[in-house]
């Protein structure tokens, strides 16, 4: 490492397995920025980092937890949320953060997402949405915009994408936000808030995938950032049904849901633990 003599270390190095850096993410990929924001938020939120664990499934974003020196679990494709659910229920003292991608959390893992949100498991779910499957080379995902080209939709995507914040809201998430990697301060603040909230929190982070998505849709990393800059409309508290993610019309960003509801554990303790007869 050619850090200059007497150069102070990077402020996030205390949370990173520096012997594993540089990481695997491509030049211009946005996962690293979302990852840094997550680490900054963890530091600034004041949560006990020894009691904090990061869980992921499979994919580019899912490699994130492996770069922290926190307890981290890189599990099977789509199954980060049920794995995290088991961890949280077995030890409610843990702060459990799921950091994974859109393909992992919303295609193969979509069922787990809606059920964890419905149950209001106390998790913080950060989804890096790069609009495609990056790790396998740019295939269509449940988030790929209609008509976009991917390796498995060479003529253009015939399917409409999910509106992830709406899905999270409809499923019962108590904190829902969407930002891009350009909006690092808002993003970091959002993750910080989500870490401090009890309940199922969901943050979607739009990020460029120059190698998979960008290459086939004439979008270089800086084009994506410019697009985020020009087309973003921040509307905090907007109803998730009204928010858009459209290359022509724009992208709605903000914190859309921030409510309090008893978590699964709260209700379990009340209904099952104290009065066993209630379980009969």
């Amino acid at each position: 490492m050619t850090t200059k003599k007497n150069q102070p270390t990077h402020p996030l190095d205390s949370l990173v397995r520096t012997d594993r850096i540089p990481h695997i993410w491509c030049p211009g990929c946005g996962v690293g920025t979302a990852f840094s924001s997550c680490l900054i938020a963890m530091k600034s939120s004041g949560i006990d980092l020894q009691k904090t664990t990061m869980v992921s499934g499979i994919g580019c974003s899912a490699r994130g937890p492996g770069y922290t020196n926190l307890d981290s679990y890189h599990t099977t494709h789509g199954r980060a949320i049920p794995y995290a659910t088991g961890m949280k229920l077995a030890n409610p003292q843990l702060n459990v953060v799921v950091f994974s991608g859109d393909g992992d959390l919303f295609a193969i893992g979509g069922n787990h997402f809606i059920h964890a949100a419905r149950r209001n498991i106390d998790l913080t779910v950060v989804c890096v949405n790069n609009l495609n499957y990056g790790m396998t080379g740019g295939q269509v995902a449940a988030t790929t915009p209609s008509l976009s080209k991917t390796t498995t939709t060479p003529q253009g995507n015939p399917e409409p994408p999910f509106n992830l914040p709406l899905l999270a809201f409809a499923s019962g998430a108590t904190y829902v936000a969407r930002w891009t990697i350009l909006h690092t301060r808002d993003l970091t603040k959002s993750i910080e808030e989500a870490l401090q909230r009890r309940g199922f929190s969901f943050i979607e982070v739009l990020a460029p995938c120059p190698t998979g998505y960008g290459r086939r849709n004439r979008e270089r990393p800086l084009d994506a950032l410019r697009f985020y800059q020009e087309k973003s409309i921040i509307k905090n508290d907007a109803h998730p049904a009204d928010i858009i993610l459209d290359y022509q019309k724009g992208i709605t960003l903000g914190t859309f849901v921030d409510v309090e509801k008893p978590t699964f554990t709260d209700i379990y303790e009340k209904t099952c633990r104290l009065d066993p007869a209630a379980c009969m």
């Binding site: 990077h10 690293g32 920025t33 840094s36 990697i181 690092t184």
Partner: peptide
């Protein structure tokens, strides 16, 4: 610190 937060590679920071 904006460079520090947007850098995807933990490669730049300011003090």
């Amino acid at each position: 610190h904006y460079c520090e937060t947007i850098c995807p590679d933990l490669a730049i920071y300011s003090v």
